[in-house]
Simulated scan of single mutants.
Amino acid sequence: MGLETGIDRGRLPRGTHGIDPAEVLHSQRMRMYFGVLEAVAERGYTATTVADIVARANVSRRTFYQMFKDRDECFTGAFEAAVDMIIGYLDASIRDVPQDDWRALLRTTLTEYLNRLADNAECAHALHIEALAAGPVVAEQRRRMKTLLAQRMQGAFRIGRGTGEVPADIPAEIFEALIGAIDDRIRDCMQTSGPQALPKLAPQLYQISVALFGIPEWATPGVH
């Protein structure tokens, strides 16, 4: 499931069609979001044009310019929507996890993040590869996304510290560095093996994370 879920990629019929105008606008906007992510994943950010986006979204250029100033503004909106979608999935994934089990929270969050990226390759390319070429606004969006993920790691740390399992305090900026390392591993995997291989990173990223917490589990059975 992803940004395209429930969105009809076909062009709306001409004339009176009885569809709520707000629903039409939402559908068109989401189709253009998916269109820009799809185009960027296929062609690269700098090569993507408005023509590429409207062709994939099946909307007119007039409709595009009624909603967005240019390609950059459309991509910025799509990036934000992709982040919101991923964060929503992460929130849902830990609802049934015991909130005092920091290891399970950490493992579930990492696994869910990688699985959702693998299921939404266009979003994965936008978040971890093409956003690097998208200018200062998206760079700031990336920083906010990484901060959100770092805060989740820090939340798991606090639980472990509270139970006495985590032996020492960790400065907040170290969690930012951890997310940077995870971002690098994800990007490398996508560029060498493709997004479908991302879930295989989960055990390694879990080991790296708990080692940072001062509890290395390199020899844990079943974790390779």
Rank of each mutant, 00 (worst) to 15 (best):
P171I: 14
A172D: 13
K146G: 02
T109A: 15
E112P: 06
F157V: 11
L110C: 07
T109K: 05
K146M: 12
R144A: 14
H125E: 10
C123D: 09
A134Q: 04
G164E: 05
L132F: 07
T111S: 15
M153W: 04
A126K: 00
P171Q: 03
E122Y: 07
G155D: 14
I170R: 14
V137Y: 04
A131Y: 01
H128P: 03
G155P: 01
R144Y: 05
V138L: 06
Y113S: 13
A124F: 01
A134S: 14
G155M: 08
L148H: 08
H125R: 05
G160I: 06
A139F: 02
M153I: 04
I170E: 09
E122M: 06
R158K: 09
L148S: 11
A118P: 13
A172E: 15
G155N: 10
L132P: 00
C123G: 11
M153T: 06
V166Q: 11
Q151E: 08
N120M: 15
R116Y: 02
E130V: 14
M145Q: 09
L148Q: 02
M153K: 03
V166W: 00
C123V: 05
L149S: 13
L117K: 01
N120I: 12
R142P: 10
Q141K: 12
G164Q: 11
A156N: 06
V137N: 05
T147H: 15
T163I: 04
V138K: 01
T111D: 15
A118E: 05
V138N: 01
T163K: 13
I170M: 11
G135M: 09
Q154G: 10
D119P: 08
D119N: 06
A168S: 14
L114W: 00
L110W: 00
I170K: 08
G135Q: 15
